[in-house]
Amino acid sequence: MPSSPSPSSSVQRARQSLADRLRELRQAAELSGTDLAAAVGWHKSKVSRIEKAVQPVTQADIRAWCDACNAQEQADDLTASLRAAEGGYVEWRRLEPTGLRKLQESYVPLYEQTRWMRVYQPHVIPGLFQTAGYARALLGAITEFRNIPNDVEAAVEARLGRRRVLTTGGHTFVFLIEQCVLDYRIGEPEVMADQLRHLLQDMSLPSVSVGIIPADAPRPMWATEGFTVYDTSQVQIELLTANVTVSVPSELNTYFKAFDELSALAVYGSAARELVAASLRALGAG
């Protein structure tokens, strides 16, 4: 079985990909490395070092490069690629050195500034809908699996505190949940039953739209990793080992398209509520 690439190798690949795109722009403009260096006032060796991903590139470097290649329209996309290479992949161990509470709290400013949040969740009930019992069971399992300091009770309190964005003005939420999530047992049966009842209540909130993707829905769009879209500026993906932030426009568009196609598979309103109710009945709690 092949080993997974390390985060450092992922970052290096992202840097090399950016360097390759810069080289392609130079070649498309029919400029030599010496020509480009002269156009922007650099030593010619800097161009070579950037194209080999030996020297880190800055936002100012990217804009100067695009100007010299008469490709100004590429600057924003390349700058976003730079941000992704610099901080898009962050291991959980770096985010959770003292436990989970601080990580839960760190999301609050982003949640509060986001006007339109879109969430696709194929694994667990979305965090903003979670009850204390469900969150306690889930965060407890994460704490044990990752072998991090146990501050589960404080983390649960912090996670529940984020729910206020659901009922404060100016926010719109769209949630897509795979039907299997309703049947995955997180915690004891009574914890899961309470969670499903709570989900039914939250589905009635005026700021919220919830779609459930039936297990038997025809799948022109497959189930992907879970992701959250914040307005139109970034997407976050939670992997087993790391949190990934996507901000490159071309990659964002891929996630926007995926969300739209997944939305088309979902049922809403009474049909969605019936799927939740069916899972409740399966627990003997209908």
Rank of each mutant, 00 (worst) to 15 (best):
M1T: 04
M1P: 07
S8V: 13
S10Q: 14
V11W: 07
A14M: 12
R15H: 12
Q16E: 11
S17K: 11
S17E: 15
D20W: 12
D20C: 09
D20F: 10
R23Y: 13
R23Q: 11
E24F: 10
L25P: 02
Q27D: 09
A28G: 15
A28K: 10
S32P: 09
T34F: 03
T34Y: 08
L36F: 01
A38C: 04
A38D: 12
H43A: 13
H43N: 12
K46F: 13
I50H: 05
K52N: 11
A53C: 02
T58N: 03
Q59E: 15
A60R: 12
I62R: 07
I62Q: 04
R63T: 10
W65T: 08
A68V: 08
C69S: 09
E73R: 02
E73V: 08
D76P: 00
D77I: 10
L82E: 04
G88E: 14
V90L: 10
W92H: 05
W92N: 05
L95G: 08
P97C: 13
T98C: 03
T98E: 08
T98V: 10
G99L: 15
L100Y: 06
L100T: 07
L100Q: 08
K102L: 15
L103I: 09
E105K: 01
Y107Q: 13
Y107L: 13
P109W: 14
L110N: 10
L110W: 08
Q113H: 14
R115G: 10
V119F: 07
Y120K: 02
Q121A: 06
P126I: 02
P126S: 00
P126M: 07
L128T: 12
G133S: 03
A135K: 06
R136Q: 12
L138K: 03
G140M: 06
T143F: 06
T143Y: 01
I148N: 02
P149V: 14
P149Y: 08
V152C: 02
V152P: 01
V156Y: 11
A158K: 07
R159N: 01
G161V: 08
G161Q: 04
R162S: 01
R163K: 15
R163F: 01
R164S: 09
V165C: 04
T167S: 00
T167Q: 06
T168F: 01
T172N: 01
F173Q: 00
F175Q: 11
F175E: 08
L176D: 00
Q179W: 00
D183R: 14
E188T: 05
P189R: 01
V191I: 14
V191T: 11
M192I: 10
D194K: 07
D194V: 00
D202F: 09
L205M: 05
V210R: 07
G211A: 13
P214C: 00
P214F: 00
R219I: 12
P220K: 02
P220V: 02
P220H: 04
M221R: 13
M221C: 13
M221Q: 15
M221F: 05
E225Q: 02
G226F: 03
G226A: 11
T228R: 14
V229C: 02
Y230P: 00
S233E: 07
A242H: 06
A242K: 12
N243D: 08
V244H: 09
S247V: 12
L252K: 04
T254I: 15
T254S: 14
K257H: 13
A258R: 15
F259T: 08
L262P: 15
A264R: 14
A264V: 08
A266S: 00
A266Y: 05
Y268H: 09
L275N: 03
V276T: 05
A278D: 14
S279Y: 03
G286D: 10
